[in-house]
Each structure stands twice: as C-alpha cells, then as structure tokens.
Amino acid sequence: MKAPQDIVIQPIVSEKSYDRMGEGIYQFKVAKSANKSQIKDAIEVLFKVTVNKVNTLNVVRKPKRRGVFHGYTSTWKKAIVTLKEGDSIPFFEGIA
C-alpha cells in the first residue's frame, strides 16, 4: 500500500485551478496507479480536511520535438478534489 505522500505528488496552481480554489476545489498531480478512494484518504490524512468528491483524469501525452528528435511528454493523472464546505488547505492559504 502506498503512503499518502506517494499518492499526492504535487499541487497544481494555474489560472484554471486558481479560479475554483475559492469554492474549495483543489487540483493535484497524483500517482497514476492511485484510485479515487486512495486519493481521498491521502488528501484527508495529509491536509486534515474532509473530501466530498474526487474527480480524476489522465492527462494525455503530447508530441514534442527538439530538433530532429521526436518524442512525447509523459502521461500523468490529475485529481480534482472537492472539500467539505468550509474546509480549506493551508498550503494554498493566502493564494485563494
């Protein structure tokens, strides 16, 4: 079984995610093998909050080229986590 730190890899702060932080919806990059309940548990343990909903999606790879070398970016999993009303994650405090 994976530790919470291995499931939640990093928070995502972008224009799109920032817009929804005020509603208690946060985005994370998570381990590709993690499922929604593992993500829920990991977030609850790491940030001491209650998670209402977890949506996930696999970010598709994109073709990249550097000179003559062709390749792709890695695929990764994004989790969109909705917290219980009134909860917030301290890491994002001062931003949202």
Partner: peptide, 16 residues
C-alpha cells in the same frame, strides 16, 4: 509563472 499567462497572474500568487 508556470500555469499562468503573463499579465493574468492573480495578486495573491504574485505576492507569494
């Protein structure tokens, strides 16, 4: 800042 277009960065993110 990655994730934001130039000129569209919110104040709070800038301060941080």
């Amino acid at each position: 800042i990655p994730g934001f277009r130039q000129g569209k960065i919110p104040k709070a993110v800038l301060v941080k």
